Computed example of a mutant assay.
Amino acid sequence: MPILSQTGPVARPDGLRRLLPGLALVLGLALAAMVLQRATGSAALSPMVVAMVAGIALRNLAPLSPALTPGIAFAMRRLLRGGIVLLGFRLTFGQVAEVGLSGLAVIAVTLVATFLFTKAAGRMLGLDRQLSELIAAGTSVCGASAVLAVNTVTRGRDEDVAYAIACVTIFGTLSMLAYPLLAGPLGLDAAAYGLWTGASLHEVAQAVGAGFARGEAAGQVATIAKLSRVILLAPLIFALGAYARAKGQGGGGAAPVPWFVLGFVAAIAVNSLLPLPAVALEGAQGVSTLLLTMALAAMGLETHVGRLRAKGLRPLALGALAWLFVSGLALALVLLSR
């Protein structure tokens, strides 16, 4: 019996029994990716990216059974939203206050300017709105998580999502390796370096890795600055959803209201106001990582390599431009704020 069928109809999940085959597959891919990351201890080896790549490989090397389709679709939608809500337990409003007004200004201006610049550059390069928007979100906010979250209102194709995540992974990893080497020549102290890192690196893991590479103080500032940036994902998604509904974008109807973002904000509020035990927070963060990794594995299983190749190098060029812009602008603003 083949693993996959490329011609079977897409079925809606209507019972646990129908979901189990697909969910078992994406869970297996996610767990394998997480074990690999822990075994290597590399912050650059994101389990979400590894799971997506494994899913793409499986999708394009063997035909998938139609029995897997309901579970894969469930992971791409319901599990994704659950993972994003649980991301809120990594943050508190107190952490935002620690960054200070000048630090928050650096983060907010960098995020908005990078998003708008990337969208404009995508239009100049002749790219689809959806792909440009996903690359913009991943670069300006928080990498793969932002790409997945924003796609709930952008409604890009699976290949758009895969390409956007590839861009933020490549260029974010380059920054993680290069930033510690640049801190000395640029004359950045621990606080300035940490703010630059948190305001410009793509993934949380990349920002944390690059921050602590320059010491404990720099790592703490980078982590808080990056998490403060993640909070801005909520207003960004609401704004994009409102704009899409106003413009009638979204593939045959008004874009949905991203109500799950309210859950994300509520999780931040709970984590800020209640003394949650460490084991509960660690559990929520672990489940969030697992759900998002499963969602990316499912995304990979729906991605055709041939369609990625057909997009050419222009999306990669856009990712490079966005990377240089966010790095340069954040550095300039940090230097000006000192």
Rank of each mutant, 00 (worst) to 15 (best):
P2W: 10
R12V: 15
G15R: 04
L20A: 15
P21Q: 06
G22Q: 13
G28K: 03
G28S: 03
L29E: 05
A30T: 09
A33H: 09
L36C: 00
Q37L: 02
A39K: 02
G41M: 03
A43W: 14
A51H: 03
M52D: 00
A54M: 12
G55H: 10
A57W: 06
L58K: 10
R59Q: 14
N60I: 07
L61S: 15
L64E: 07
A67M: 03
T69A: 12
A73R: 15
I84A: 13
G88D: 01
F89V: 02
F89R: 00
F93R: 00
Q95M: 14
V96C: 00
V96I: 12
A97F: 07
G100N: 01
G103S: 06
G103P: 11
V109M: 03
T110K: 05
L116K: 13
G122E: 11
M124S: 14
L125V: 14
L125N: 11
L125S: 13
G126D: 12
L127F: 02
V141Q: 08
V141G: 06
A144V: 13
S145P: 05
S145T: 14
A146T: 06
N151K: 07
T152P: 09
V153G: 04
T154P: 09
G156L: 02
R157K: 11
D158W: 10
A162T: 12
V168S: 10
I170L: 15
I170H: 06
F171G: 11
L174R: 08
P185V: 12
G187F: 04
L188S: 10
A190C: 15
A192R: 13
L195N: 08
S200Q: 08
S200T: 11
L201C: 11
L201Y: 12
L201Q: 15
H202T: 14
Q206F: 13
V208I: 15
V208D: 03
G209Q: 06
G209M: 09
A210I: 12
F212A: 05
R214A: 15
A217W: 04
A218K: 11
I224P: 01
I224R: 13
I231Q: 04
A242G: 14
R245W: 01
G250F: 05
G250C: 08
G253W: 02
A254D: 10
A255V: 14
W259K: 07
F260D: 05
F260A: 05
F264A: 14
F264T: 13
A266Q: 04
A269E: 02
A269N: 05
A269W: 10
V270W: 00
V270K: 01
A280Q: 03
A280P: 07
E282P: 08
A284Q: 00
M294A: 12
A295N: 15
A297G: 09
G300F: 01
E302I: 00
H304K: 10
G306Q: 01
R309D: 01
K311R: 14
K311Y: 01
K311F: 01
R314T: 06
R314D: 04
P315C: 07
L316G: 07
A317I: 07
L318I: 10
G319M: 05
G319H: 04
A322W: 05
G328E: 06
L329H: 03
R338G: 15
